[in-house]
Design a protein around this nucleic acid. Structure first.
Lengths: 193, 193
DNA sequence: GATAGGTGAGAACGATCGTTCTCATCCTGG
DNA sequence: CCAGGATGAGAACGATCGTTCTCACCTATC
């Protein structure tokens, strides 16, 4: 059948392509990275690349989709590992952001970057970006509700998360996350009274 | 002398080029807009275009520079026109953001978009983006100091401004600005006690 | 009114990119 | 050992882009 473990089966090729796409598209932007650079970084021949992803647009959409899944899963995992107190879980969001901002490869929100670069087309990019932000908003809404905050708390946390990310995009480092964390603490304090 | 009012002198050509660059680069992204599209929109011949801006990079830098100056001046004007109370001036920032988010052409922060698209090169883009954010931070610091807030207030307002802008980039409309305004009100309330 | 210099419109050029095609090579089944 | 189908490496193709060049035309001076 040929898929019993040859030199590189399609699944591994797909992983390597998405690894290369993630590293290159996120670092340099989508339009600045050509398919040949993806091929060089992934070591997957062009022919196979185009068999797995029939066009660049499909690769971009798959990159954003996997980036979204990993990002949100990382956030959820970090939050779940936090101390049981729901308020601590809210604050854990910002601790996780601080770690993210400190990564050398950090370059802001991949979805806002892609959207700013590509505009509304192709629609797949827009869809993934919107889905990502809706998912983040839902995580924050759940945490806000568990912490007993008012209805607006989820949306307020969203502004803090996005604000810290945008500020860190121009001046990387954990400082914006810590500031946003302090603001979230104030919001939670308010919610209590 | 030739500059006494011919059909179109270089100053007018420059304005038309920057108008076209602003509309097109901001809406569609820098890389997605070719020089010929700038020529078509501005009605300035290519030859003249390249005499005024010797390369696309120079046009992009000039576009971002003028965009920055207009944006910051608009903010300062709106803030200055607000009620004399320094706290009202802080809140006026978010009223101005609400108006901005409601413009049909709104597509998030032009500088973050350009930075996300182009990465660190060319350096001119990076410089203008950094200068823009530093200027915004200074405006907010001044307002925070005038309102008698703590040292951190300026940086906190920055996170609110950037957060509202990022959220609005995916879901345009004044709602994020209003929410950020409410959060700023809470910060000012805290600062008072 | 003739001429020289600059202008506008668009063709042309070289590079790059997304995508496809060629062909030598290799692995598989008989 | 041999035929054949798939694979990999990279050339090739068509489109697009940034930039430059051509050339007819206009304008302004002597």
């Amino acid at each position: 059948m040929g898929r019993t473990g040859g030199v590189m089966d399609d699944d591994e090729a797909r992983v390597r392509l998405l690894d290369a796409a993630d590293a290159l598209f996120y670092t340099y932007g989508v339009q600045a990275v050509g398919m040949d650079r993806i091929r060089a970084e992934s070591q997957v021949p062009l022919k196979r690349l185009y068999r797995i992803f029939p066009a660049k647009e499909a690769l971009v959409a798959a990159y954003l989709d996997r980036h979204d899944r990993r990002w949100t899963a990382g956030l959820r995992r970090h939050v779940a590992a936090a101390h049981g107190d729901p308020r601590e879980q809210v604050l854990a969001v910002f601790d996780w952001l601080a770690e993210w901002f400190d990564e050398p490869a950090f370059r802001g929100c991949a979805f806002l970057n892609a959207l700013g670069e590509l505009g509304d087309t192709p629609a797949a990019v827009n869809d993934v970006a919107r889905r990502h932000k809706a998912e983040l908003q839902q995580v924050l809404n759940e945490l806000a509700a568990a912490a007993g905050g008012p209805d607006a708390l989820g949306a307020q946390l969203m502004i803090l998360v996005e604000g810290a990310t945008a500020v860190a995009a121009l001046a990387p480092g954990p400082a914006p996350a810590r500031r946003a964390r302090a603001m979230a603490e104030a919001l939670l304090g308010h919610a209590v009274r």
